[in-house]
């Protein structure tokens, strides 16, 4: 069931409505689709700039989450799952971060996504921040893994909005590959 979400009078509408999902995996448990779907919950949705900030101010920052937690910020109607219709031909850019950077960089990424800074039409599906023991990981998902020009534009925008040093390693992984090896990263 998708939550109903509407821009109210006086608010600044976003190009898309979004849902924020939260998941936490018991460390050591191998991910399976069934598990994953049980462990992931919508914690809020928004259609305007004001509704976004209201929600954002009321949820913990990534740095305050325990290990194995994830926030998934996806367009309303797209589940943060490889199998979703919008995702199944897609992939994601992955950036690994040393501990301590995730909250700030996640905010930068979210703001760029909501403000439509990626300039790739309907391609962006959502973004994920994954809090892990030794590092944190930020990723952005797009619809068409096979379109190299789109992928390059997403990568360059990601690099710019996160203000990453030029030598930062960025990996692209298709969801088909994730499904094959049952692993996100």
């Amino acid at each position: 069931e998708w939550p109903t979400v509407k821009c109210k009078q006086g608010e600044h509408q976003l190009q898309y409505s979004y849902c924020v999902w939260f998941s936490r995996r018991t460390p050591g448990n191998k991910a399976s689709s069934a598990n994953y779907e049980q462990n992931i919950k919508i914690i809020g949705s928004f259609a305007s700039v004001e509704q976004f900030w209201t929600l954002y101010s009321h949820i913990a920052r990534p740095c305050d989450l325990t290990s194995s937690s994830d926030y998934h910020l996806f367009k309303h109607g797209i589940k943060p799952m490889w199998e979703d219709e919008a995702n199944k031909k897609g992939g994601k850019w992955i950036v690994r971060l040393r501990k301590g950077l995730a909250s700030r960089l996640w905010e930068n990424l979210v703001i760029a996504m909501l403000g439509e800074q990626f300039m790739v039409g309907e391609e962006i599906c959502g973004a994920v921040v994954s809090v892990r023991f030794a590092e944190d990981i930020i990723s952005i998902w797009n619809r068409t893994a096979s379109d190299n020009s789109i992928n390059i534009r997403v990568r360059d925008t990601l690099q710019r909005v996160l203000n990453l040093p030029p030598n930062t390693i960025m990996e692209y992984k298709t969801h088909t590959d994730s499904l094959k090896d049952r692993s996100s990263f």
């Binding site: 006086g10 608010e11 600044h12 509408q13 976003l14 190009q15 700039v49 004001e50 900030w53 209201t54 101010s57 930068n108 703001i111 760029a112 909501l114 403000g115 439509e116 800074q117 909005v161």
Partner: peptide, 21 residues
């Protein structure tokens, strides 16, 4: 069609708007 684009500074400033509380 037209896209609704917001720059970073605008969105950050909106954080303090009364409707965002």
């Amino acid at each position: 069609g037209t896209r609704i684009i917001y720059d970073r500074n605008f969105l950050l400033n909106m954080r303090n708007s009364p409707l965002s509380q």
